[in-house]
Amino acid sequence: MKYKSFPWFQLKILSGARVFSRYCKMHEWSIAEGIVRSLEAFAEKNSIKRFVAVEINVGELAMLDLDVLNEALKTISQEHERTRNTVFKLRIEHVTFTCNKCGCKWGLQRGLETIKGSEDLMIEDLEGGYDLPLHYMPELVYALMRCPSCGSRDYKVEGGRGVRIISVTFENGGVGEHVS
């Protein structure tokens, strides 16, 4: 792997979500598009005319940059009538891990340090940034992370796994039952 494009990597391997997210900003656009499409589908089912505000929980495990995600949402939402001028409220949902074998509890930063061969696993994007596979598929955590205390892969992941729309404020367009 070439390090020239990001010399910080050698100094601070796997030092956490904030470091990665500063360099890898492309994937957030794909997520934003998915959110807007999901809102469109939800509006269709529930006869919603326009979303005024949308609250979104963003799982810490995906290591997304909230500023970039917010910017992407603002841009993409303008292209759709029902989400034009919608206010998006994003909130990080933290993740905790509990080992089923030894009872150890840990957070994301400590867990990332257990990922072996992480340099080889990094995925390059077209802007020359590098991400862990977790950035794209947070559920791969079980394949990559181990208990920092006993090394087991048998642990519970609580919270912080995906991106979820948790509440919407909307103007109703007529008949229809709410389906969540």
């Binding site: 794909s30 997520i31 598009e33 998915g34 959110i35 499409r37 999901s38 809102l39 589908a41 939800f42 005024v52 995906g162 991106v163 979820r164 729309i165 948790i166 509440s167 919407v168 404020t169 909307f170 103007e171 109703n172 709410h178 969540s180």
Partner: peptide
Amino acid sequence: MEVLGNMSVDPLYEM
């Protein structure tokens, strides 16, 4: 205006 809370809509399926 109406508010719908306690939702859990995941964008993965649409993506």
